[in-house]
Design a protein around this nucleic acid. Sequence first.
DNA 1: TTTCGTGCAAAACCTTTGCAAAGTG
DNA 2: CACTTTGCAAAGGTTTTGCACGAAA
Lengths: 160, 160
Amino acid sequence: MNKAHKLHKHTDDCHPDHSHDQALKRALQVLKTSSLKGTQARIAMLEFLTEKHGPFSPEDLHRMLKEKNMDLVTIYRTLAAFEKIGLVRRCDFGDGISRYEFESEKSHHHHVICKSCKRIDNIDKCAAQKVQRVVEEMGYSDISHNMEFFGLCSDCKSKG
Amino acid sequence: MNKAHKLHKHTDDCHPDHSHDQALKRALQVLKTSSLKGTQARIAMLEFLTEKHGPFSPEDLHRMLKEKNMDLVTIYRTLAAFEKIGLVRRCDFGDGISRYEFESEKSHHHHVICKSCKRIDNIDKCAAQKVQRVVEEMGYSDISHNMEFFGLCSDCKSKG
DNA sequence: TTTCGTGCAAAACCTTTGCAAAGTG
DNA sequence: CACTTTGCAAAGGTTTTGCACGAAA
């Protein structure tokens, strides 16, 4: 069974300001800083991720970048590398599939996934910051978080 | 490789009021209401989960309830059934392992996982409620959420 | 040139499924 | 007794690993 790989596109624009190229430049900079080589595969993935934003599963990326003839394994390894240096964030929608999204201060947000039609909406407000302060007070540093919401969207509700 | 299965115990008491048995009673009630049979396996798991609370992976439970001679598959199926009727909540710590925790209104909370020593602390404050209101305004109903924090605990920080 | 990254094949791992036997109400 | 649940075995799907070849600095 090929679970819920095809999820709806976002219903709102993540980047109405067309700041893709800036994000890409910064990303390539981070790559250098981390002494990772600027290979074709990595550049192709960063171009895609900064423009389309996500979240995408490794298989999604493999399919959507198939003209680049990259191995799925390379995509897994590249995403792991990107995650380690903070270029992407891993999302978990609870279906056993990892999804990744380009991460930057500006772009940080969370999602609601409709339990029925699997559509994804962005939530711009990140209330986790208040909790983050609590976590800091507990003595933690270098804090990150995951937060996803699940619900029934209005369309699915009205359809019964 | 057997990833981070052995996580530290919580460093604070979840239930200083010893309300295990009450929670267990209510859980068994929910079982009946959902027309699920009160089998040995289910009762053993509920006893364990209401007392020790979690979060536990299926394998954790299998190991810790090994005197009951339950098959791992039974544990998977039971957890799935419990999750469906809201008796447990699934947590994702981003390491590819599902962990489950007994869920009740009183017990609802989130975690911080130390990236280094894997210790888990509870966060009692659930700031997700404000975001939940935003999600409601977007038209969603029947909303649930996952939220986990990751950081470096003070012990690990001082050890370098 | 030296180090790092990629592709391919295979393995590891967690989770799910099918079916006969046993248990529950 | 009718129906659900369990155990066992096997399969499924995602992710990881090993190694030789190729690419980047």
